[in-house]
Each structure stands twice: as structure tokens, then as C-alpha cells.
């Protein structure tokens, strides 16, 4: 417990330093935050254009898809804020800088995660919050305590799932630095998939990116519960409240993969 508290305070210290550094360049920060907002907004524009041609997509209305989109994007945005720089992790391996981390008195994953914190990614958070506001405002949700609880737990669970997937797939860099882009299919690909109703995708894609890589638990299942909507896929209702459990399981798998990868890491030496 004391160790956890120490790690948390160290985390706060390191992240505060990074944030202060980024705020030194105010114009850059402002431009890049706006850019992040717009880049993220593009995905929602696609949804709006689609719905300008059809009234619903796989039985989902525009406001219902907006809810999926907002929950998925909010989870992804927070994950991206905290560990988005993992995309640059393969460079640490290639340059041999990961070796430095192995000799320091803190966990390697902790050091990699505290390596950066891109505040400009708040632009994406802001965009997702706007869409969430629109969705909740438009949908006449019949609020019950369990629905409120499921909604409240959706984003924390989503962050844990995205984070776990990100950590697990970036481990590919321990074996092949060049092939690291393949990880994007799971991280960015998963984030894209989660914005849409799972039932419009073909079965094999659903099984692979929806359940095996548990993207269906990011927004689709919790949204069904919150909306009181019948699952077009007809899957057991218990899945609709299972996101927190799936998230914890994903975290266990990810930390196991990370430890396995670090144990098998062979430095380039030098």
C-alpha cells in the first residue's frame, strides 16, 4: 500500500513537470489542442454524413450511435492522454534506451508510462464530451440507479481495456521494431470499431476485435443496458454489465504479456 502511494505521488510529480513544460509553448499548445479536437471531430462528421442518407444504422438511431461514439471516444481520449506515447515505445528499444530503465529502481512499465503526457489530447476529450452531451440530451433515457451506475463505470472500464490492449500489443516491439505499426490495427482500429454498433460488422470481425480484443465492452454492451435496448445480436444480458470485470481481466492479461516480453528482452547491447 505504501508502495502504491509512493508510486502515485511520483507519478503526479513527473506528470506535473511534463505538463508545465508543455504549457511553456502556449501557441503550440493551443493550435495542437484545436487540431486534436478537429481530427477527432472528423469521425463524428462521418457518422452525421451517414445519417444524412439513412434514418438508422443496424437498428440504431443517430443519437444512439452518438452515445456509442461518445463513450468510445471519451475512453480512448483519456487512454491516449495517459499512454498515447506508447506509440513511440519501439524507438526506446531501437535506441537502446530501454536498457536504462531496467537498472532503475522502478517498474519498467511505470517508467514508460510516465515518459510523456500529451496535454493537447484534451482536445479529443472536449469533443467527446460535447457529443456525449448531445446524445444524453436527445435520448429520453429512463434513468434507474443501475443504468446510472453502468454509465458511470463505462468510461473507467473503457480506459482500462484500451490501456491493456495498447500495452499488450506494443510488446510486439520487443521482437520486431519495424513491425510495430501492426499494433495500430488493435489500438486505433479497436477505437474505430467501438464507435459503431457491433451488429453491423461481420461475425469473424466481431469475434476477433469485439470479443477476443474486447472492444464490444467499451461502449456497445454498456450502451444497450443504459438505453434499455434489445441486443440485435441476442447475446446474454449479463454481458451488458460485464465491462468492469472484462477490464480487470484485460489488465491482468496485459501485465502478464508485458512481464513475459521484458523477461525475454535481449538488448542490442553496446
Amino acid at each position: 500500500m505504501a508502495e502504491l502511494r509512493e508510486s502515485l505521488s511520483l507519478y503526479r510529480l513527473l506528470i506535473a513537470a511534463r505538463v508545465r513544460a508543455q504549457l511553456q509553448y502556449r501557441t503550440s499548445f493551443a493550435i495542437e489542442t484545436v487540431a486534436a479536437f478537429l481530427v477527432s471531430f472528423l469521425d463524428f462528421v462521418a457518422i452525421l454524413v451517414i445519417f444524412s442518407n439513412v434514418p438508422q444504422l443496424g437498428t440504431w438511431s443517430v443519437a444512439q450511435v452518438a452515445l456509442l461514439y461518445a463513450l468510445a471516444t471519451l475512453s480512448f481520449a483519456f487512454t491516449d492522454l495517459v499512454i498515447g506515447h506508447l506509440d513511440g515505445f519501439p524507438a526506446l528499444i531501437r535506441d537502446g534506451n530501454f536498457d536504462l530503465m531496467l537498472v532503475r529502481p522502478k517498474g519498467t512499465l511505470f517508467q514508460v508510462i510516465t515518459g510523456d503526457f500529451q496535454l493537447r489530447r484534451l482536445g479529443r476529450v472536449a469533443q467527446a464530451l460535447l457529443v456525449l452531451g448531445y446524445a444524453l440530451n436527445t435520448l429520453a433515457i429512463d434513468w434507474t440507479p443501475d443504468r446510472a451506475l453502468v454509465l458511470a463505470l463505462t468510461v473507467p472500464s473503457g480506459v482500462l481495456i484500451y490501456g491493456s490492449v495498447w500495452v499488450a500489443v506494443i510488446c510486439i516491439a520487443f521482437w520486431t521494431v519495424e513491425g510495430r505499426e501492426a499494433a495500430n490495427a488493435f489500438t486505433y482500429g479497436g477505437a474505430f470499431l467501438a464507435q459503431y454498433p457491433m451488429n453491423i460488422f461481420d461475425r469473424w470481425l466481431r469475434r476477433f476485435l469485439g470479443y477476443f480484443v474486447p472492444m464490444a465492452f467499451i461502449a456497445y454492451f454498456p450502451a444497450l443496458h443504459v438505453l434499455g435496448k434489445t441486443d440485435p445480436l441476442g447475446l446474454p444480458a449479463v454481458l451488458q454489465v460485464a465491462s468492469p470485470v472484462v477490464a480487470l481481466a484485460a489488465a491482468v492479461v496485459a501485465s502478464t504479456v508485458w512481464r513475459f516480453a521484458v523477461r525475454h528482452y535481449q538488448s542490442a547491447g553496446g
Partner: peptide
């Protein structure tokens, strides 16, 4: 960098499937 090419093709292909299924869902109604 052939390995980078293969990884990139994999990602572009996965996204291609997702985008195809999303737009195909429009044709269930029209």
C-alpha cells in the same frame, strides 16, 4: 523496410473491412 510495409498493409486491410461493413449497413435500407 519490408516488415514495416507488411505491418502497414495489415492495418490498412483491417480498417478496410471495418469501413466496408459500416457503409454496407446503409444498403440494408436502400
Amino acid at each position: 523496410y519490408p516488415a514495416a510495409t507488411i505491418a502497414g498493409v495489415f492495418v490498412n486491410t483491417v480498417f478496410g473491412f471495418m469501413r466496408a461493413f459500416i457503409l454496407l449497413a446503409l444498403f440494408e435500407q436502400r
